[in-house]
Amino acid sequence: MPTLRVCSLYPELMNIYADRGNIAVLRARCEWRGLGFEHAAASLGAPLDPDAHDLFYMGGGQDRDQIAVAHDMAATKREALHAAAGRGAVVLAVCGGYQLLGHSYELGGDELPGVGLVDLRTVREPGPRLIGNCAIEADLGTGSRVIAGFENHGGRTHLGPEERPLGRVLAGHGNNGSDGFEGVHRDNVIGTYLHGPLLPKNIWLADHLIELALGVELEPLADQQFEDGAHASARRAAGVQARLN
């Protein structure tokens, strides 16, 4: 059986909204199916082997940590991430990690470098932080589905003209609170403001990412009562009851 090899980027710094929930879900769902699971970490200064992992994960951090991470990532991991994405590895970047996927991120008057994996910029605009439950409608090639979660960001993200968002905002703010879109999606690279434990709330997405990363089709698992319930709960919190899938 194949093994899902996951690499968390800066997990000890970029974990502010309980990002480890995503890793716990990927691990359990692989193990329950008899798939192997390996979890590695690459932090400040560490080199990154683009071929050693099938899925790269990056969460959000405090501003101070994010500054250190932005510079380190541009200096030590940019090329490897481009190579990994280029060969079809999955990149899931959430919250602060999402902001650093683009060209630049404006923080406290400074412009932090991004890795330029996708064409987007994150800037500061007048107005409050964008905080709250959020639900979006996304099509990752398997039909329209809902992703529900929680967003909390000061930056406003604007996609370049050729870039596709992850989804359309059904409830909440999304990328910038104005254009009605959320996240970014190019090939197997996904960025989103739905932060922290996003996969526990959207198990379908967890399974889909495993399929993409391994190039396999998975059988559904039996007894998904709590997984379905958690998804319904997150949607209910965002005010988007089940009407799509």
Binding site: G21, V25, A28, P200, K201, F226, G229, S233, A234, A237
Partner: peptide, 22 residues
């Protein structure tokens, strides 16, 4: 509670091999 199902899911993935009720 208002997010009961998510609590139950958390326990399931924590490996709590107990009867879980929502």
């Amino acid at each position: 509670g208002t997010r009961a199902e998510e609590m139950a899911l958390r326990l399931k993935y924590a490996g709590i091999d107990a009867e879980l009720v929502v």
